[in-house]
C-alpha cells in the first residue's frame, strides 16, 4: 500500500505543475485546456511506460489527477489489445474508465437537475 504522504507529495506536485503553467501563461489557458493537457500527457506518458512508475510511487497521488485518467484509458487499451487484438484498441480504454466517465456524467446531470447556480458576492 502506498503511504498517504507519498500520495500527498506526488498529487500536490502534479497540481503545482498545473499552477505554474496557468500563472506563466495568459488567462486564455482555461481549466478546459488544463484538463485536456493533463489527460493527453498522462495517456502519452502511460503509452511510453513512464506513468506506471509514478503510480507505483504515488498511488492515488498519480491516479486521482486527470493524467491518471489518461493512464487508465491507455492501460485498459493495452490490456485489451493483448486479449482481443485490434478490437481491443477500440474497446479497452472506455471499458477501463467506464466507471469514472459514467459517474461524472450521471452525477453531473443529477446535481444540475437538483441545484441552481448560486449568486456570488
Amino acid at each position: 500500500m502506498v503511504p498517504l504522504y507519498m500520495a500527498f507529495l506526488v498529487g500536490g506536485s502534479l497540481c503545482l505543475i498545473g499552477q505554474i503553467i496557468m500563472d506563466a501563461t495568459k488567462a486564455n489557458v482555461t481549466p478546459g485546456h488544463i484538463l485536456v493537457g493533463y489527460i493527453t500527457s498522462g495517456a502519452i506518458l502511460s503509452g511510453l511506460g513512464i506513468y506506471q512508475s509514478l503510480v507505483n510511487l504515488g498511488g492515488a497521488g498519480a491516479t486521482v489527477p486527470l493524467s491518471g485518467f489518461g493512464h487508465l484509458l491507455v492501460q485498459g487499451t493495452l490490456k485489451a489489445v493483448e486479449q482481443r487484438g485490434l478490437l481491443g484498441a477500440f474497446s479497452g480504454g472506455v471499458e477501463a474508465a467506464a466507471a469514472g466517465i459514467t459517474a461524472a456524467i450521471v452525477f453531473g446531470y443529477l446535481v444540475a437537475v437538483v441545484f441552481n447556480p448560486k449568486v456570488k458576492e
Binding site: T40, V81, L86, G93
Partner: peptide, 18 residues
Amino acid sequence: PTLVFGFVVAVLVGLIKV
C-alpha cells in the same frame, strides 16, 4: 474535449501496440 483527447491517444497507443 477532455474525453475526445483521452480516447484518441488511447486508441492510437493501442493501434501502435497492435
